[in-house]
Computed example of a mutant assay.
Amino acid sequence: MREAYPESKKSIEYKSQIKAVMFDLDDTLIHSTIDFMKLKRKTIDFYSSLGISPDTLFPNMKTHEILQKATSMLRKKGYTPREILCIVKKTSILWNQIELENISSTCPIEGAKKTLTTLKKQSYDVGVVTRSCRRYALKVLKLTGLLEFVDVIVARDDCEKDKPDPEPLVHAMKAVGSKAEETIMIGDSITDFLCSKNAGVRFIGVLHEDDGLKNLKRNMGVETIKDLRDLIDVLT
């Protein structure tokens, strides 16, 4: 739970200007069933087949870090921008397949439906900004009963760049007509935090047991909640 403090005038003004709430998807709104370790290993194997040494890419790296490093090394090997774009598209297809493997066992995060229901009753625009593919996002949101509360979805295949680049979040804001100062982003990772920061959007992290966000909270004062339902207290 969030600790209770007397509300300042600035806090009240902040609450009143928020119009849109954007969420990360995996492990923020739903319990992800994606085998991320398999996804990373398959990605490393794919780039190894293209001549990238597997000793330079590691499963403990984030997926976007693996992709950035691999494509950088392809450029150094003389691959053209067009060739690299084609390779990245093949990578995305590989990711799509793995993301869709275990959808049937996906379930919502505790309190997700109640939180989204309350936000819609209070006339907030609700968006989902995810690094997963659109087909996956639509399927899991429908399966978990959350799709009806979502006004906009921006997935990996909707933008040229992924989080932590601000492009997906900016795209979502444009879709609902909200400005950065009228938007709040909810996520469970440093990638979500950086995306929000790069877009000039306030961020609230949902803490998990093994989470780098704890270090951000400790060292940078990043606002966090332990339960998604606590978000309503932030906004009301």
Rank of each mutant, 00 (worst) to 15 (best):
L116S: 08
A155L: 08
H31K: 13
G145Q: 02
I18L: 09
A4I: 14
D230K: 03
L207T: 12
A180S: 15
Q68K: 14
R202F: 14
V234R: 11
L146N: 12
K142T: 14
L146E: 05
C133G: 08
K38R: 12
E182I: 03
E3R: 12
G177M: 07
Y14Q: 06
F58V: 07
D27P: 08
D27M: 03
E13N: 05
R156W: 08
T118H: 14
L169C: 07
G221R: 05
F23E: 10
T117L: 12
V88S: 13
D211R: 00
E160G: 00
K38A: 11
T33I: 03
D211W: 00
V222F: 02
E65A: 13
D192N: 10
I232K: 05
D192P: 12
V140Q: 08
Q122R: 15
R134P: 03
Y124V: 08
I153G: 07
P81I: 03
T130C: 08
G127D: 13
L74C: 09
L169Y: 08
L146F: 09
K9T: 11
V140D: 13
E3M: 10
P81H: 09
K77D: 12
R41G: 01
I87G: 12
P54V: 08
H64D: 10
K69V: 11
I186G: 05
D151E: 04
V88L: 11
I184S: 02
P168N: 05
Y124I: 05
K120I: 04
T236M: 09
Y47S: 00
V222H: 00
E101N: 11
R218E: 14
I12R: 12
M185Q: 06
P166C: 00
L50Y: 10
Q68A: 13
L143G: 00
E167R: 05
T91R: 14
S105L: 12
G205V: 09
Y5G: 00
H64R: 09
S123Y: 11
L74E: 06
K179E: 14
T43D: 10
D55N: 12
K161F: 13
M61D: 02
V154T: 12
E65D: 13
M1K: 13
G78D: 09
W95E: 15
G111S: 06
L169N: 04
S196Y: 07
F149I: 01
I52P: 01
A20E: 10
M185D: 04
E182L: 01
L74N: 07
R131E: 08
K174I: 02
L213W: 03
E99G: 11
K19D: 09
M173L: 03
G177F: 06
A70N: 11
T236N: 14
T117Y: 08
E101P: 06
